[in-house]
Design a protein around this nucleic acid. Structure first.
Length: 212
DNA sequence: AGCACGATTAACT
DNA sequence: GTTAATCGTGCTC
C-alpha cells in the first residue's frame, strides 16, 4: 500500500481493506466505486450508504444463528461477496469483512451511479434517476447482481464485481457522514436495533471532489 | 411437513 | 401512511 502505483485512484481495494473492523470498513466504503463488469459493459457507482453487520453477538446479523449453509460465506475470508435473497423477490449485496472465522459483512445500501447509466436506466425503467439505486435491492436490480455471484472473490484479478478506490486513498471528512440505526430490524432486541452502524454520505460525489 | 418471518420495493389511498 | 408481492431459511412438531 506504500507503493504510489497501488494508490492510484482506480486501484481495486485489496483484501487488507476489508479485513478490518466491519464498522470502520462500512464507513470507509463511502465514496468508493462499486464496479460491475458484464459482457462488454462496465457499470459503476459511488457508494453513498452502507451498514455493518458484525458477529454472532450482533442480533441484527444473519450470523447470529451461527454457521449454516446461508451464513457460510460470512465466516469465510474478507473481500468475498455475500449475496442473499429475501422477501421472496429481492437480492442484497454484502461484502465480507474481518478475520476468517469471524462472521461479518457490510451491506451496500446506496450508490450514486456514474458509469453505464444507459443500461442502469433501462433496468430501472420508469423510475426517476434518484430512485435508481437508493436501496440495497435496487442496486442489485440495476447491476444484475444475484445468487450466481454469492461467494465470489472481489479481490480476484478477473472478478466481475469489485470496489475501486474512488477518492485516491483520502478519507471523507466526518462532517459529510451521517450515522444512524440500521434499517429494517423491526424485531431485533436492543442495543442491536439502535446501534449506529448505518453510514450515509451526505454530499453529492462529483469528479471534482474525488480529484479526477 | 408446516410455519412465521424477513438487512425490501413499488403502487396505491 | 398502507399494503401486496413472493419464497428461502431456520425453527418446531
Amino acid at each position: 500500500m506504500n507503493n504510489p502505483e497501488s494508490m492510484s485512484e482506480d486501484a481495486r481495494l485489496s483484501r487488507d481493506f476489508f479485513k478490518r473492523n466491519t464498522v470502520i470498513v462500512a464507513k470507509d466504503l463511502l465514496g468508493k466505486r462499486l464496479v460491475r463488469l458484464e459482457n462488454n459493459h462496465r457499470l459503476a457507482g459511488y457508494i453513498v450508504e452502507a451498514e455493518a453487520y458484525r458477529g454472532e453477538e450482533d442480533l441484527g446479523c444473519h450470523a447470529h444463528v451461527g454457521y449454516t449453509p446461508r451464513t457460510r460465506i460470512m465466516y469465510g475470508s474478507a473481500g468475498h461477496a455475500y449475496v442473499y435473497f429475501t422477501y421472496g423477490m429481492h437480492w442484497m449485496l454484502n461484502i465480507v469483512t474481518e478475520q476468517e472465522g469471524f462472521p461479518a459483512a457490510v451491506l451496500i445500501r446506496g450508490i450514486q451511479p456514474c458509469e453505464g447509466l444507459d443500461i442502469i436506466s433501462e433496468r430501472r425503467k420508469g423510475l426517476p434517476i434518484n430512485h435508481w439505486t437508493d436501496g440495497p435491492a435496487k442496486i442489485c436490480q440495476a447491476m444484475n447482481i444475484n445468487g450466481e455471484l454469492n461467494g465470489i472473490d472481489l479481490c480476484a484479478p478477473n472478478a466481475p464485481l469489485f470496489v475501486e478506490n474512488g477518492i485516491a486513498g483520502n478519507a471523507i471528512s466526518d462532517e459529510y457522514i451521517k450515522t444512524g440505526p440500521r434499517v429494517g430490524l423491526f424485531s431485533v432486541p436492543e442495543p442491536w436495533k439502535s446501534i449506529a452502524w448505518r453510514f450515509i454520505l451526505q454530499m453529492e460525489v462529483s469528479d471534482e471532489i474525488i480529484g479526477r
